[in-house]
């Protein structure tokens, strides 16, 4: 995913990625990433948990504007189901 992200950014469009495997992101070095320590196949959380999905998206869009150092990975400390999501 990070490799494609780098190509899109090279073409001149700002990008933000959601990562669930920090080691890959550290190596591939996309410009901006939020990282969630969540299971494979669930970058936005659980099926039909709209508030959780919206919360992740908002964090990603926030990071798109907040990150000013290329390659930054923003760690989101959310513990999967054990959080209250307001969306």
């Amino acid at each position: 995913m990070g490799l494609i992200q780098r190509e899109v950014e090279k073409a001149g469009i700002p990008t933000i990625g959601i990562s669930i495997v920090r080691q890959y992101t550290e190596k591939v070095k996309p410009p901006r990433t939020i990282f969630l320590k969540w299971p494979f196949g669930h970058p936005l959380g659980e099926p039909h948990n709209v508030a959780q999905q919206r919360s992740v998206l908002k964090k990603a869009l926030e990071a798109l504007y907040a990150v000013d150092t290329p390659g930054t990975i923003v760690d989101i400390p959310w513990r999967w189901r054990r959080e209250r999501y307001h969306g």
Binding site: I13, I18, V21
Partner: peptide, 12 residues
């Protein structure tokens, strides 16, 4: 670019 995307979100 051609379709005017200003920002792109990538998901694995």
């Amino acid at each position: 670019k051609d379709q005017g995307a200003d920002i792109v979100l990538l998901t694995p």
